[in-house]
């Protein structure tokens, strides 16, 4: 199926993570240009290595160091992208982080950090990118949420709350901007084989058969397919405000 993403300009956060790397690669393979907003240079090198191994066209990706907690920095970067590329067709908010800790033991700083990394950065960047999207009268936003938004677990109370916030952000923003031809959706990955999920994977092994209908963890590829599907106007032009579970049936 042609996703119609050729020459589309995609802004991606969290591109250096396990799922983000795959999303970046697949957009490039579909002919899009991906602008990765990053914080950590070392991780960018890892991403470039990964893209090289996959023989991705490195001319189709660019990198901008961005402090996603700094509103003015975000505005500058977004306006640079618009100046250089002329438009922004797709935003994928994939940056996020999980710290497992009993909620009763979390410090105020840890709660703040959880909110900032998982929710506030997404809101600030989305706000800045809505400006060119309003102007274009088109755009597609895909947020990476988690099954934790609906079914939490011990030690991830704050993380689950932020992910539930992303779901709500997705639905309500979709309501606000739909008339301007901007779609907003989310994916909810379940247990996905990445570095971030390694500790969970080893602990959860014995529960997998009974809790996940498909009896296995998912792969970053299985998540990125969902992201590209929702991002594309060729496949998801009538889909907005939805959160797509990519969880092997965990939430059933």
């Amino acid at each position: 199926m042609n996703l119609g993403l050729n020459n589309k300009i995609v802004v991606l956060t969290g591109a250096t993570g396990g799922i983000g790397q795959q999303i970046c690669l697949e957009f490039i393979q579909e002919g899009a240009h991906v602008v990765c907003l990053f914080r950590n240079e070392k991780k960018v090198e890892d991403l470039i290595d990964r893209l090289k191994v996959s023989k991705a066209d490195l001319n189709s990706v660019s990198f901008k160091k961005t402090n996603l907690l700094h509103k003015n920095n975000i505005r500058e970067v977004v306006s640079e992208i618009v100046k250089e590329k002329g438009r922004i067709d797709v935003l994928v908010n994939c940056a996020g982080n999980v710290v497992e800790l009993p909620f009763a033991m979390m410090s105020e700083e840890q709660i703040d950090q959880m909110y900032q990394v998982n929710l506030k950065t997404m809101m600030l960047l989305t706000q800045a990118i809505l400006k060119p999207m309003f102007s274009q009268k088109s755009g597609s936003i895909v947020n990476v949420s988690s099954i934790a938004a609906l079914r939490g677990g011990r030690g991830i109370t704050a993380y689950s709350s932020m992910k539930a916030g992303i779901d709500s952000f997705t639905r309500t923003l979709a309501l606000e901007v739909g008339r301007k031809n901007i779609r907003v959706n989310a994916v909810r990955p379940g247990g996905i084989k990445t570095k971030m999920s390694e500790p969970l994977e080893s602990r959860a092994e014995k529960y997998i058969p009974e809790r996940i209908i498909l009896s296995r963890f998912g792969t970053p590829e299985e998540v990125s397919k969902g992201v590209l599907f929702l991002a594309s106007d060729a496949t998801a032009s009538y889909i907005t405000g939805t959160c797509l579970n990519i969880d092997g049936g965990y939430l059933v």
Binding site: L130, K131, F134, E176, R179
Partner: peptide, 13 residues
């Protein structure tokens, strides 16, 4: 309100 945001964005540019 959303049109207004749109209008303000355009005028800003």
């Amino acid at each position: 309100s959303i049109d207004l945001v749109d209008i303000l964005f355009e005028l800003e540019s």
